[in-house]
């Protein structure tokens, strides 16, 4: 069951991500991105991380992508125009991306034991209700990164206020 879900929604995520790049209208790209987010949520769910799945849908598909669509509607953005791009990107682009992909996957695969230290991966597998596990982890072991992130978001809010304020 889990394998079938992974095959279907993993494939869907990849297809939607490709579609995101190939579509020429921004709204269609944004909708493809929504499909990617939803497929990822299903993958989290099939791994037993229900809270993460719901949060993924609420935050990414619900909040962030709605703002993307909102901005595209507000600016009434038209179809993008194709250009040939720079010569450097044309030559090094594909090999460069492949090289970075190889490097990253090498690092992740060789160091995969080190990533389990925060126990998130370990907790998600067995527990049926993992909301309390995730939250107690957030407020004990991961408190500092959690608070730093909230300060970061606060800075972004202040920036928005400064930009939106009328000139005196």
């Amino acid at each position: 069951m889990q394998l079938a879900l992974f095959m279907i929604f993993g494939g869907l995520a990849v297809l939607a991500a490709l579609n995101l790049l190939l579509q020429r209208h921004p709204i269609n790209s944004a909708l493809s991105l929504v499909v990617v987010m939803m497929s990822l949520a299903v993958l989290y769910w099939s791994l037993g991380a229900e809270f993460l799945a719901a949060a993924q849908v609420i935050v990414y598909s619900g909040a962030i992508m709605v703002f993307f669509v909102f901005v595209i509607m507000l600016l009434n953005a038209g179809e993008e125009e194709r250009t040939t791009g720079s010569r450097a990107a044309y030559i090094v682009g594909f090999p460069g991306a492949a090289a970075i992909f190889c490097l990253l996957s090498f690092v992740f695969l060789s160091e995969r034991n080190a990533f389990g230290s925060s126990n998130v991966g370990g907790y998600l597998n067995h527990v049926t209700s993992n909301i309390s596990e995730v939250s107690s982890l957030l407020f004990t072991k991961l408190l500092l990164p959690f608070e730093v992130t909230s300060v970061l978001i606060l800075v972004a809010i202040l920036g928005a206020v400064v930009l939106a304020r009328k000139e005196q």
């Binding site: 709204i27 849908v57 598909s61 909040a63 669509v69």
Partner: peptide, 25 residues
């Protein structure tokens, strides 16, 4: 009967904006 019932409901509510926004656009 989900043990994240309310969260799942809010996830669906969050998505329902698309129906209206896309219809308008």
């Amino acid at each position: 009967d989900l043990n994240i019932g309310l969260l799942a409901l809010f996830a669906i509510t969050a998505l329902s904006v698309y129906g209206v926004a896309l219809a308008g656009w």
